[in-house]
Write a protein that binds this DNA or RNA. Structure first.
Length: 672
DNA sequence: TTATCCGCTACGAAG
DNA sequence: TAGCGGATAA
C-alpha cells in the first residue's frame, strides 16, 4: 500500500529564486527535480554531488515540503554542516528545523528520548574508542578468563570484532571465522565477554558508537508506534555517500523510511573505501534490485579536473570488475600537464622532491592551500613533515590525535560525564586515577564504595548529598588532601538541587579547581593545553545542556578540523592527509606519495589475495587521482631502509604499473 | 601498591 | 615512533 502524502501549498514568501534549469546541468536537473519515490543517484567524482543534494533539498522546500519532514544523512559532521549551510544560502527557510546529520548523531538524537525502550537511561554516556577499550578491559578482568595461557584477543581487537559484528549484522562465528581465524579456539570465551560487555554497558549506562546505530534500529524494530511516528515525520530521506553504508546503516535507513517512503541515495560505487568497517558496495550496486521502482540517475560530467587527470582516473578504475560502468566526462578543456610519475631514491629524496615542487608552485602563484600531500597511512607522512618544517613550509595535518581525544580534553570531560551519569564507571575511574597515590587497585575499591554510597540513581541528587557521598569515600592516606580538592570541585558542578550547571561553568570549575595543578605536574606543554581548555570552554558556550555538549564532543570527528574551537582553517598551508580523509576534497596540485607496491596496495591485502580487497585499494587509488584539479604527482621511493630488514627495493604500485604509459609522464630525478 | 623505566614490537584506513 | 608489558624502585 503506497503511503499517502500531501504536498503543502507553497508559501510564496518562502520560495527561492532559483532557476533550476539554468543552474544545473541536464543530468543534475533530472535528479534534482525527480518525482517522489526511490532514486539512486550515481554521482561520479567531481560531478557536483553536493550541489545535486543541496538543490534537491531546496527543490523539496520550494515545493512546500516542511523542513522538519526532511532527513539528510551523511557520514561526517562536516558534510552535514556544509550541506545545511548551502541549503540555507539557497532557500529562505529555517533550516534548523531540518533533520540533518551523521548516522550517529541522528541515532543519538532519537535515542535521547527513548533510551528506556532499549535498556538505558536518559543521561547515558557515549564512549569513544578509548573509553570503550577501558570498559572492555574491566569486563575481561571480571570475566575470570585466563588471558595469558593462550592467545586471547586484546581489548582493542575485541572491540573491533564486536564492532564488525554489529555493523555487518553478522554472527559471531562467521566474523571470527572470516576475519579472525586464529581466535577460533577461544570463540566461547569471546562470546562470554561479549555477553558481559553488553550487560556492563547497561549497568554503567554507557553506549559505544555502534550502539547509537544498533539501538536505534532495535528501538524502531521493536516499537511499531515509535517507528511509525518517525516514518510519518521523515517524508523525504536523503543519504549521502551511500556507497559507504554498511548493513546496519542500511537497516537504519529502511526503518526510518518505511516500505514506500521517499528515499534518495547518492553515491559513487567507485569511491567505496570503507569495507574494513563493514561497508558493503553491494548496498549501492543492488539498490535498484532491492527497490524495484528505483529511478537511476547518472551524473558523469566532471567539473573538477583537467582531461589529462580524468583519463588517468578512468583508466585506473577500469581495471576493477565489480562496478557500475561509467566514464567521467571532462567539462574542462585539454591543456593541463600530464600526470607525473616520479621515482625517487629514498623516502628522504621523495620528501625533498615534494617540498621543492611545492615551493616552485608557490612561486608560480599557486597558494599553499591549493596543494595537498596524500598518503595511504599516517606514518607515510613522517619524512614529509620533517622536510616541510625544515624548509619553513606551513602545513596542516589532519591526522594524529583528534582535538577531542587528547588526554586533557578527555580528563575534563570525565568530570562532566560523571555528573550527568553517575553510573559511568569509566569516567569515575579516570577521575580518581588522576590523584597521586591512587592506581588501579585503589581506584577499583573506590568505585565499589561509590556504588555502595547510593549514588547510582537516575534522579537528581542535591549537592549536599553528593558532597557527603564524595567525602565519605576512603582514599589512601597520601591521597586525602588532593581528593578533598577533587570532591569540592565535583560538588561545584551541580546546583543546590542537584542540576548540572552549564557546560562552560563546569569546564571552568574543573580547570580552576583541580585540573590546572594536575596539568602542571603531568604535562610539559601545559600552557598549550591550558589554551585548549579555554577554547573548549568557548566552544561550550554554544550549549546550555551538558548532555548536548558531551554528545557533540563524542561525535565530532577528526576530519572536522574546522569544528574544533581553534579554527585556523583560513591559514594558507599545504594539506597533509590520508586518502580516506581526503574524500570529497580537491586541490590544484596533489602529491600522491609512497605509491610503492606493498605500501599501496598494502602488503596485507596482497598477501591475503582477496580479490575484493584489492579492488577496494584500487578504488582508493581512484579517489586519490580524482582529488587533483590540475597537477598530479605520483611518487615512490626506490629504496626503503628498515631497521629490521635493512634496505628494501621498492617497485611501483601495481596500480601505476597497469596504467597505459601514454597517460602519464615519467620523471627522472637527478641529485646535483 | 604505585610510579617509572626499559626494551620490544608493530604500523591501515575512522565514527 | 609509540605504546605496550614486565621488571624494579619507592
Amino acid at each position: 500500500m503506497p503511503r499517502e502524502y500531501t504536498l503543502h501549498t507553497s508559501n510564496p514568501e518562502r520560495r527561492s529564486a532559483i532557476d533550476y534549469r539554468a543552474e544545473l546541468n541536464d543530468q543534475q536537473y533530472e535528479a534534482v527535480t525527480s518525482a517522489p519515490g526511490q532514486a539512486l543517484v550515481i554521482a561520479g567524482a567531481g560531478s557536483g554531488k553536493t550541489r545535486t543534494l543541496t538543490y534537491r533539498v531546496a527543490w523539496l522546500l520550494d515545493n512546500g515540503i516542511l523542513p522538519e519532514n526532511i532527513l539528510l544523512l551523511t557520514f561526517t559532521n562536516k558534510a552535514a554542516r556544509e550541506m545545511l549551510e548551502r541549503v540555507q544560502g539557497l532557500v529562505p527557510v529555517e533550516t534548523q528545523q531540518l533533520w540533518g546529520g551523521t548516522f550517529h548523531s541522528i541515532g543519538n538524537r532519537i535515542l535521547r528520548h527513548h533510551a528506556e525502550f532499549v535498556g538505558f537511561r536518559k543521561g547515558y554516556s557515549i564512549m569513544d574508542r578509548e573509553d570503550q577499550k577501558s570498559l572492555m578491559d574491566t569486563v575481561i578482568a571480571s570475566s575470570g578468563i585466563d588471558t595469558s595461557s593462550f592467545h586471547f584477543p586484546k581489548s582493542t581487537v575485541l572491540c573491533e570484532i564486536f564492532s564488525l559484528l554489529t555493523n555487518t549484522l553478522g554472527g559471531l562465528h562467521e566474523v571470527i571465522a572470516d576475519r579472525f581465524e586464529h581466535f577460533i579456539r577461544v570463540e566461547d570465551q569471546i562470546e562470554e565477554v561479549w555477553r558481559l560487555y553488553e550487560l556492563k554497558k547497561r549497568e554503567t549506562n554507557s553506549m559505544d558508537f555502534d550502539d547509537l546505530l544498533a539501538l536505534t534500529v532495535a528501538l524502531l524494530e521493536e516499537n511499531p508506534d515509535v517507528r511509525e511516528r518517525f516514518q510519518r515525520q521523515f517524508q523525504f530521506v536523503l543519504v549521502d555517500e551511500f556507497q559507504d553504508t554498511n548493513s546496519l546503516q542500511c537497516k537504519m535507513i529502511d526503518m526510518l523510511v518505511g516500505e514506500d517512503g521517499n528515499l534518495m541515495v547518492v553515491g559513487d560505487d567507485a569511491q567505496s573505501i570503507y569495507s574494513w568497517r563493514g561497508a558493503d558496495v553491494q548496498n549501492i550496486l543492488q539498490f535498484p534490485e532491492k527497490h524495484h521502482r528505483t529511478h537511476v540517475h547518472k551524473i558523469e560530467v566532471n567539473y573538477r579536473s583537467v582531461p589529462e587527470v580524468l583519463h588517468l582516473a578512468n583508466a585506473a578504475i577500469a581495471n576493477n570488475s565489480g562496478q557500475i560502468r561509467k566514464a567521467l566526462q571532462p567539462a574542462r578543456p585539454v591543456g593541463g600537464m600530464l600526470p607525473a610519475l616520479v621515482p625517487l631514491d629514498n623516502p628522504g629524496a621523495q620528501a625533498a622532491f615534494v617540498a621543492q615542487r611545492i615551493l616552485e608552485l608557490r612561486d608560480e602563484g599557486v597558494d599553499f592551500r591549493e596543494m595537498a600531500v596524500l598518503y595511504r597511512a599516517h606514518f607515510h607522512s613522517l619524512e614529509i613533515q620533517m622536510e616541510l618544517t625544515q624548509r619553513g613550509i606551513p602545513y596542516q595535518i589532519t591526522s594524529g590525535l583528534r582535538f577531542f581525544e587528547q588526554a586533557h580534553v578527555k580528563d575534563v570531560a570525565a568530570f562532566m560525564k560523571l555528573i550527568v551519569n553517575r553510573h559511568d564507571e569509566v569516567s569515575f575511574m579516570r577521575i580518581v586515577r588522576m590523584i597521586p597515590g591512587v592506581g588501579n587497585a585503589s581506584a577499583g575499591r573506590l568505585w565499589t564504595d561509590w556504588r555502595k554510597s547510593g549514588m547510582l540513581t537516575d534522579e537528581d541528587v542535591p549537592r549536599a548529598t553528593l558532597a557527603a557521598a564524595l567525602h565519605g569515600l576512603k582514599v589512601p592516606k597520601k591521597a586525602t588532601s588532593v581528593w578533598e580538592q577533587f570532591a569540592y570541585t565535583l560538588e561545584e558542578l551541580v546546583t543546590e538541587e542537584g542540576k548540572p550547571v552549564p557546560p562552560r561553568s563546569m569546564i571552568q570549575s574543573v580547570t580552576e579547581g583541580v585540573y590546572l595543578d594536575y596539568m602542571k605536574s603531568k604535562f610539559e606543554n601545559y600552557e598549550q593545553r591550558e589554551q585548549d581548555l579555554e577554547q573548549l570552554a568557548d566552544f561550550a558556550d554554544n550549549f546550555r545542556e551538558p548532555l548536548e555538549f558531551l554528545g557533540q564532543l563524542a561525535l565530532l570527528s577528526g576530519v572536522d578540523t574546522d569544528n574544533k574551537p581553534a579554527d585556523d582553517g583560513d591559514k594558507d598551508a599545504v594539506t597533509l592527509t590520508t586518502i580516506h580523509q581526503a574524500k570529497g576534497l580537491e586541490w590544484h596540485a596533489v602529491f600522491a606519495v609512497w605509491l610503492a607496491d606493498g605500501m599501496f596496495p598494502h602488503s596485507r591485502v596482497i598477501e591475503e589475495g582477496a580479490f575484493g580487497a584489492l579492488e577496494e585499494e584500487r578504488r582508493l587509488f581512484y579517489v586519490t587521482i580524482t582529488r587533483a584539479k590540475d597537477e598530479l604527482y605520483m611518487t615512490y621511493p626506490l629504496i626503503w631502509h628498515q631497521a629490521r630488514d635493512g634496505n628494501i627495493m621498492q617497485k611501483p604500485s601495481r596500480f601505476v604499473a597497469e596504467l597505459p604509459k601514454e597517460l602519464f609522464e615519467l620523471w627522472k630525478i637527478k641529485a646535483w
